[in-house]
C-alpha cells in the first residue's frame, strides 16, 4: 500500500519538477540526489567507507554546524518578541520566559545551543589538531576555522548584552573597557593618551557609541548579533566547507 502510494507520488509532474530524479533507491538516483541538490551537494556523491568511521571525526564539525542552524532558527523566534530598547528589553525577556507559549523553550534552547556551539568548536578544533588535519595543503582552512572560532565567541559576547540584565551589563562593560586598553587607539592603553586618544574618540567609544554602556551599545550589539556576525559566519562557513572539498579530506585513504 505505502509502496504503491510512493510509486504514484514519484511519478507525478510536481515531484519530478522539484527533484529532477526518482526516489533514491538505486545507485543512479543516489548519485543524483546528492549532486542535484544545492544543500546536499557540499558532499561528494561517494565517500570512502573509512570516512564514515565515527571514531575519527566524532561528527564534531557537523554538530557545530547543526547548532549554528539551531541558533539561527531559535534566534529568529526570539526576535519576534524582542525590542532592543533599554526600557523594554528586560521586560521582553521576562515575557518570553514566563508568558509567551514556548518562549522559555526557545530561550533555553538558544542559550544552551550557544554554550554547545562554543564547546563543539573547541572540540572540533582539538580533533583537527590531534589528527594533524591542518597540515599542508589544508593550512588555510585551519585559519578560516580560527576565524570562525573567534566569530563564535564574539557572537556569544554580543548576545548576552541583549537581555539587559546584570550579567549583560557587566560583561559588556568589562569587555569594552578592555578594548579601551588597546595600545595606541584606546584611552587607557599604552601610548593612547600620548596620541591624544580620549574617552570620546577611542575604540571603546566606537564599540558602544557612547562613554557608558547604554542605548547606543544595546542597538549596536543587537545589529551585530542578529545581522552582521551571522552573515560573516555564514560566508566563512561556506569557504570552510568548500575548502574541505577542494583541499581533500585528511582521513585514512
Amino acid at each position: 500500500m505505502l509502496e504503491k502510494m510512493k510509486e504514484k507520488v514519484v511519478q507525478t509532474q510536481l515531484f519530478k519538477s522539484v527533484f529532477r530524479h526518482g526516489y533514491p533507491d538505486n545507485e543512479l538516483n543516489q548519485a543524483y540526489v546528492v549532486f542535484s541538490n544545492i544543500f546536499l551537494h557540499i558532499h561528494p556523491v561517494k565517500v570512502r567507507r573509512s570516512a564514515l568511521r565515527m571514531r575519527y571525526t566524532f561528527c564534531l564539525g557537523g554538530i557545530t554546524l547543526f547548532l549554528f542552524i539551531m541558533l539561527a532558527v531559535t534566534g529568529i523566534w526570539l526576535m519576534f518578541y524582542y525590542t532592543p530598547y533599554t526600557g523594554l528589553a528586560y521586560k521582553n525577556i521576562k515575557d518570553i520566559q514566563f508568558v509567551i507559549f514556548g518562549g522559555n523553550l526557545m530561550r533555553d534552547l538558544h542559550r544552551f545551543a550557544a554554550h554547545g556551539m562554543v564547546l563543539f568548536v573547541w572540540l572540533h578544533m582539538t580533533r583537527v589538531f590531534l589528527t594533524g588535519a591542518y597540515k599542508a595543503p589544508r593550512e588555510f582552512n585551519w585559519v578560516v576555522g580560527v576565524v570562525l572560532l573567534v566569530n563564535t565567541l564574539i557572537l556569544s559576547w554580543t548576545g548576552y548584552l541583549l537581555p539587559w540584565d546584570q550579567l549583560a551589563y557587566w560583561a559588556v562593560t568589562v569587555g569594552t573597557k578592555m578594548a579601551s586598553y588597546t595600545p595606541f587607539i584606546g584611552q587607557n592603553g599604552p601610548w593612547g593618551a600620548q596620541l591624544g586618544v580620549n574617552p570620546t574618540n577611542d575604540l571603546m567609544f566606537m564599540m558602544i557609541g557612547g562613554t557608558v554602556v547604554g542605548q547606543n551599545a544595546l542597538i549596536r550589539f543587537y545589529v551585530l548579533h542578529c545581522v552582521v556576525l551571522p552573515l560573516v559566519v555564514t560566508v566563512f562557513l561556506a569557504v570552510h566547507f568548500w575548502r574541505i572539498r577542494k583541499d581533500g579530506f585528511s582521513g585514512p585513504l
Binding site: P24, Q30, V33, L40, K46, V47, R48, L52
Partner: peptide, 14 residues
C-alpha cells in the same frame, strides 16, 4: 575504491 554512496550512508549518520 572502497567507497559507498553518500545517500543514504553519510546522510543518515548526519
Amino acid at each position: 575504491e572502497d567507497t559507498v554512496y553518500t545517500w543514504p550512508n553519510l546522510i543518515m549518520i548526519e
